[in-house]
Nucleic acid binder design. Structure first.
Lengths: 146, 146
DNA sequence: CCAAATATTTGAAGTTATCAACTATCAACG
DNA sequence: CGTTGATAGTTGATAACTTCAAATATTTGG
């Protein structure tokens, strides 16, 4: 009978490899497009997490970015220097500073989001039936991992 | 009749969004695992592109990493300092330097590759039929984009 | 009130990135 | 030949990103 050694030809492995490849390509493409907006990945991810209608404490942004709080200081500095957000005192607790997008920030965020989640790369080329199937499978994958 | 505004509920868009989400999660997971090997993404990608059996000119590594040649100098420096590769003179053309993995480099490369393409994340949790379908669709996506 | 905990900032150090300038080598043409 | 121009790699400057440790300001709880 078959030994339990997971040989690398199993569908999961090839799927993962393809996933990796497509992801790398997408990352390159998005990175190039972002740099044309004057954005880097960290700045773009910060914008992504900043809801234009709901200021976010810096600490929560650090959580969302999975990075040290001290890192967020610099990121907020750069975004603030470009007029994309303002630091506001937290109500009730003057230790916290809320990051609030300016109109310019909200506008740039919209453009960055469109780049990041918008025009599908390899996926757009697929026939619609495949797109639907892919969506369904990825939905299941996301549910299962959580 | 339907206006041609691509509404964001089309399967391609949601599939792309899910793809993005799964990719981000995978990147975090892999980044953490790589750091336990003392590797960063650039170093790991460099290792990935270095075939243990075929030394690579530094310029070609720069192409593969989509970065400036001067960047590769530093990356090669760090890998060389750790005994993972050696610079060898190119045969015939003494301008080029070939990067050749040492046995230690080849060993660490294997471990990094296993992390990067190995244990599938969300995908492993899927039923095998889904994995097969996913693989087939991603294959088509890769073919179509090239 | 005082001590401990929390939110943010600062400073040091290392990695990554790009650009421009430099060195060394090669290739080719007259 | 020998100069001229291209090519491979390095170096130095500058900037962003990252983490850690230390400092500051504020809050919370005993």
């Amino acid at each position: 009978m078959a030994t339990k050694t997971k040989d690398q030809t199993m569908p999961a492995y090839e799927a993962q490899r393809l996933f990796f490849e497509i992801g790398m390509e997408a990352r390159r493409r998005i990175g190039t497009a972002l740099s044309e907006l004057g954005l880097t990945f960290p700045l773009a991810h910060a914008l992504r997490l900043l809801d234009p209608d709901r200021p976010l404490p810096m600490g929560e942004l650090a959580e969302g970015l999975f990075c040290d709080a001290s890192n967020v200081t610099g990121i907020a500095d750069r975004l603030e220097a470009r007029g994309l957000l303002v630091r506001r005192a937290g109500e009730g607790d003057r230790r916290v500073k809320m990051l609030a997008l300016t109109p310019a920030g909200a506008k740039l965020r919209r453009r960055a989001l469109d780049l990041m989640t918008g025009p599908p790369a390899a996926i757009a080329a697929l026939p619609e039936a495949d797109q639907r199937t892919l969506r369904d499978i990825l939905r299941r994958a996301v549910e299962l991992q959580s």
